[in-house]
Design a protein around this nucleic acid. Sequence first.
DNA 1: TCTGTTATTGCAATCGATTGCAGAGCCGGA
DNA 2: TCCGGCTCTGCAATCGATTGCAATAACAGA
Lengths: 360, 360
Amino acid sequence: MKRTLSSALGPRTAAATRPTIKDVAARCGVHPSTVSRALSPAMKHLVAADVAERIQAAANALGYRLNMAAKGLRTGRSGLIGVLAPDIADPGFPPVLSGIADQLNAQGYATIVVDVGRDGSEQDLVDRLIARGVDGLVLATVTLRDDVVQHCLDAAPPVVLVNRVDAAGLLPSAASDDAAGMRLAVEHLVALGHQRIGHIAGPQHISTGARRRGGFEASVRVAGLAARHTPVEVAETYTRAAGREAALRLLARRTRPTAIVAANDLLALGVYDALAAAGLACPGDVSVVGHNDMPFVDMVSPPLTTVRIAQRDMGEAAARLLLDRLAGRETTTDHIVLAPELVIRGSTIARGPDRSAPPR
Amino acid sequence: MKRTLSSALGPRTAAATRPTIKDVAARCGVHPSTVSRALSPAMKHLVAADVAERIQAAANALGYRLNMAAKGLRTGRSGLIGVLAPDIADPGFPPVLSGIADQLNAQGYATIVVDVGRDGSEQDLVDRLIARGVDGLVLATVTLRDDVVQHCLDAAPPVVLVNRVDAAGLLPSAASDDAAGMRLAVEHLVALGHQRIGHIAGPQHISTGARRRGGFEASVRVAGLAARHTPVEVAETYTRAAGREAALRLLARRTRPTAIVAANDLLALGVYDALAAAGLACPGDVSVVGHNDMPFVDMVSPPLTTVRIAQRDMGEAAARLLLDRLAGRETTTDHIVLAPELVIRGSTIARGPDRSAPPR
DNA sequence: TCTGTTATTGCAATCGATTGCAGAGCCGGA
DNA sequence: TCCGGCTCTGCAATCGATTGCAATAACAGA
């Protein structure tokens, strides 16, 4: 029946040509511009109520759908937002993405997500998105030494950063409070009696890597731990394999730490691998803390103690930041910082004889 | 310097107006149409080599970028592909998505990914994507009783299914061989000596849920196991919680199975929860097999034996299927089936005294 | 030298929707 | 009865790029 209907209504060739505003106008005996007004919520008040209703009905009957390309061409706005992701397959990213998309969809925007991958040039992808006429950009990829920032400031539509910040803090951003997260982790371990705490840092050209390392170093200093008891090894990428290598280097040091704070859950899983390889038990010999609370780290063995960051909120905040800019609202809060939360599971236990933590 | 450059070149107001084909034409003293031809690989041969070169240089100097909306309006093709996902946050989906995007990007297409969520109407989202002028659609959401199928056949651009098939097999698809996957799981358990094998089925209105159940039932029949020794419980959703509930029901039956095959890894994790709640050990009391081999199920305790499906390949295959259709190439292979692979880990062990499996 | 190609380039229409401007009709008030 | 003002609708230009057709120039062959 539906088939019959559509073919009966198809005014053109068999290959269903989508009806345009003209078709609707012809069917109602009015001018296309009137149809345009009747169908646009903002201009509808200019059209007589009965006419508007007739037009609406005709549009429905024909199955008329607005052609966004044409509208975009005329108005200069595409309703498209570009999102640059470092790696869609990273289990930490989907919640962020979903937060972004929800907010944006609600306002009628669609998102184009582009996975940068290891080879693709970020610059080039940004340009391609701009060619597509995106109204704004959300970057989850920026590194600290990055020309894309300048490039965007120069000639691009509004841009916001998510889960990252740029070196100079020029671009608005939504990110977790990395320093606070590390403080939570370190304080937890110190309270458990750990005195020698190592850190597996993330890539230092990425803001989370650098800031979490900074947070770690500040926290252990505050806790009064000596630098030689708080070694740091840097992992070149946020991967399980890189975490394993870095942890192996850390464990090979003269005085082995009794606890390790990883910059990321993936790295923490690599630490698990390294401990297994070294014949050490977690948490028996070494306690481990991760960061991000990505899905299913509660199921690994032992369940990972980690710093949960508000990924969905982060995405939503970034989207709102962007929407503000798109609407011309220049908000004062350019850098939204989300509070992290410590999730204690099975990978951390008290150290040695002094089970009772100092009252502090 | 860059800033100086761009402002020096900006021919219009301070608010950087993107240069158009006209600007390039003016700068070269040629007609816009000549610029269009010079810049289009397909039409370039119509333009004198030296002129083309001059135009190319001017375009670069001005930082000219093609306006896709305008091109799309004129040519009727947007270069956009819509992808409908059931839930981006599902850890199984990113690899598929990434496979799709890679293939499509390579051909100059961009993908718009839409998360259906629980409330959003699929039909409506499809319509919105069509309004955006997508050249094609990839659906990872179709259910077996779904009007979207009909809707798409009626008046939509080319559509392919991924990780799903429709009830009548009308739409081209790329999916894993569910029956074969279940056969691998069942044969593995039978070889280990299990005689009472339960199945936690997925939602029956989703093709994977129904087909895996069918595959399970066929496999146990072939293995000669009685129906009363191969109970099935259906989980209403593909979630850990639903898996837990269904497993609890299964365990409450008169004769408890010694092994459980779950339709999905998420459900399998729910089975773990149920076993823990019932005070049973895995694999000591009950062996468990999952499906999909989603990230990190090798890290859970015990590491999950599961059926690995070729998710990335699936995405790539779906994209190629779509590209074929977009290019007018009607391939004969409408339903691409990918072979699964059994990954044996720690959640399955031999049952009872007869450790030695039959030779076969 | 003249004619027929061929190689380049310009012209103008077109895709579908939006919007400033102008004109038509209608109302009430003086 | 006439006019100002208001409401509603039509007209036409426009966004940026593409492309069939026409025009021109250059060149070869006779």
